[in-house]
């Protein structure tokens, strides 16, 4: 699945870029562990911290081995692209998923502002456009159908009150 692993004919991405991608998750885990230590050490009785510190120790132990393994795997590469070019290639490859992240973020921001149903309608229309649909009837039809289903299931059946803003 790795998007940093190029196909046979694709140019090889920059080693620094591949390193950033490959080590991102595990580094985030280390940062979380560091923040945990910073937030708890000296503030909470040590007896109560045996368990989380055991978890952190194990995370560091296995994390370091994965770190070494990943870095070792980067030796001997001969990249065709520099860091910026590699990033551009990735952005091009993942433009639709990136569109999903952007639309999703804006969607969640405006839910409280304009209300759940209005923001959902806008997000659905935007996503269908990003996905390549240009058929207005289809877009409106799918949007209305899904929102009607959500209304029936969650509002009528489950009695949920979705977030409301200026509209619904």
């Amino acid at each position: 699945m790795q998007n940093d692993e190029e196909g046979e004919n694709a140019p090889t991405k920059s080693t620094a870029y591949v390193a950033v991608v490959r080590l991102s998750f595990i580094t985030a885990g280390f940062v979380l562990a560091g923040l945990y230590l910073e937030s708890t050490y000296g503030r909470i009785r040590l007896n109560n911290l045996y368990y989380p510190y055991f978890v952190i120790s194990m995370l560091l132990l296995f994390g370091v081995t994965v770190y070494i393994e990943e870095i070792y795997g980067l030796f001997g590469r001969s990249p065709d692209l520099d860091f910026t070019e590699s990033m551009k290639v990735t952005l091009e490859k993942w433009k639709r998923p990136i569109g999903l992240v952007l639309i999703g973020t804006v969607y969640l921001f405006i839910i409280d502002l304009v209300g759940f149903f209005s923001s959902s309608a806008l997000a659905m229309i935007a996503l269908m456009l990003v996905g390549g649909s240009r058929d207005a009837k289809q877009i409106v039809g799918v949007t209305l159908l899904v929102l009607a289903l959500v209304y029936l299931l969650f509002v009528r059946l489950m009695g949920l009150q979705p977030p409301e803003g200026m509209f619904i």
Partner: peptide, 25 residues
């Protein structure tokens, strides 16, 4: 079914589904 129909539908269902748990954004 084109995925451009499936993806928005699933996104909206998951958003309201996660909200339903505690009524929290």
């Amino acid at each position: 079914l084109p995925t451009f129909m499936i993806v928005p539908a699933i996104l909206v269902l998951t958003v309201i589904g996660s909200y339903a748990m505690r009524g929290s954004m």
